[in-house]
């Protein structure tokens, strides 16, 4: 059953929100799936939590630096 019409979406925002390393698009939460980036299997940014990448996605350098920082701290996946 539908409970009204849905206006809560912004295509342009979504289309411009993607991982700068692998162009994995941002996928908002839907049908039990958490919000995530559609990274490729070998993308370095896979280890970053979605929230962190949402903050940094417009700069590939910032993403690489964050990945390097987390690797140096021993992180292997999103926490």
């Amino acid at each position: 059953m539908s409970y009204g019409v849905d206006w809560d979406d912004d295509f342009e925002d979504r289309a411009r929100t993607y991982c700068p390393l692998c162009q994995g698009a941002y996928m908002p939460e839907w049908s039990g799936q958490e919000a995530h980036f559609g990274h490729t299997g070998n993308c370095d940014a896979r280890i970053l939590p979605t929230r962190t990448l949402l903050r940094l996605y417009d700069s590939a350098t910032a993403v690489r630096e964050e990945v390097a920082r987390r690797r140096s701290e021993g992180s292997t996946g999103p926490s």
Partner: peptide
């Protein structure tokens, strides 16, 4: 935006 990104979004929206 890049086609790769648009294809992913279109695929997800298609499921919705």
């Amino acid at each position: 935006p890049p086609d790769t990104v648009l294809m992913q979004i279109q695929q997800r929206d298609f499921q919705i």
